[in-house]
Computed example of a mutant assay.
Amino acid sequence: MKKARFEAFSDGVMAIIITIMVLEIKVPHGEQFSDLKDVIPVFLSYALSFLYIGIYWNNHHHMVSTVHQVTGGILWANLHLLFWLSLVPFATGWIGENHLSAAPLSLYGCVLLMAAIAYVILQNLIIKSQGQDSLLKKAIGKDIKGKISPVLYLAAIAFAWLYPIISGLIYVSAALIWLIPDKRIERLLRQIEDTPTQNGD
């Protein structure tokens, strides 16, 4: 499969996921701003999940930019990632309908944890396909954020049954960590593009 088709399919699935989530926000019966009060929890859960999907889309785009050949293993690993991301609307809707209840928050964390694991699997397969001089491996380095995130999700799952508010704050914190622009791949690709020009001078 050509990389363009691979990336277009992934982009399309993520766009559909966001569309499904926004459709969960039901228009209230009423014409006053006070009528929006019941929609606030649903909107907040949507905003957080929108942020997570946006982060995955952004990171997926940068990761795929290093791919030269899409193997069968990479295809299946990508589908595995998209499967868990496709469950985000369901978990998001459950949180929105039940506010900060333990079970919905716990399920939300499980979905995020499995998506994080799936992303690492995809990342490792891409690195493996690139060999010892893997561009992606050089770009991600120690991948500290990638290692911290699963720990945060596990903590949030545990706190969901004890202190739901703390669980929600952990999910927000994990998203904010990834919200900080990560330009390692962009920087490395730019260096590679500039190298021939420098050699020619």
Rank of each mutant, 00 (worst) to 15 (best):
A4Q: 15
F6P: 00
E7V: 06
D11S: 01
G12W: 10
A15H: 07
A15D: 03
T19I: 04
I20A: 01
I20K: 04
M21E: 02
L23A: 06
E24C: 02
K26D: 10
P28I: 09
H29Y: 09
H29Q: 09
E31P: 01
Q32W: 12
Q32M: 10
S34W: 12
S34D: 07
S34E: 15
L36K: 08
D38G: 07
I40M: 13
F43D: 00
L44H: 15
Y46L: 10
L48H: 11
L48I: 13
F50E: 03
Y52D: 01
Y56H: 09
V64R: 08
S65K: 14
T66A: 04
V67L: 11
H68W: 12
H68M: 08
T71P: 02
T71I: 10
G72Q: 15
W76D: 05
H80R: 04
L81C: 03
L82N: 07
L85W: 00
T92S: 08
T92N: 12
E97D: 14
E97G: 08
H99I: 12
S101L: 10
A103L: 12
A103H: 02
S106R: 02
L107N: 01
Y108Q: 07
C110V: 14
V111S: 03
M114A: 02
I117S: 01
V120P: 00
V120R: 12
I121M: 12
L122E: 06
N124Q: 09
N124Y: 08
I126T: 09
I126W: 13
Q132V: 11
K137D: 09
A139K: 07
I140K: 04
I140L: 07
G141N: 11
I144S: 05
I144M: 11
I144L: 15
V151Q: 03
L152R: 05
I157Y: 04
F159M: 03
W161Y: 04
I166P: 01
Y171T: 00
Y171Q: 00
Y171H: 00
V172C: 06
V172L: 15
R184A: 12
R187M: 11
L189I: 15
R190W: 10
P196S: 13
T197S: 11
G200N: 05
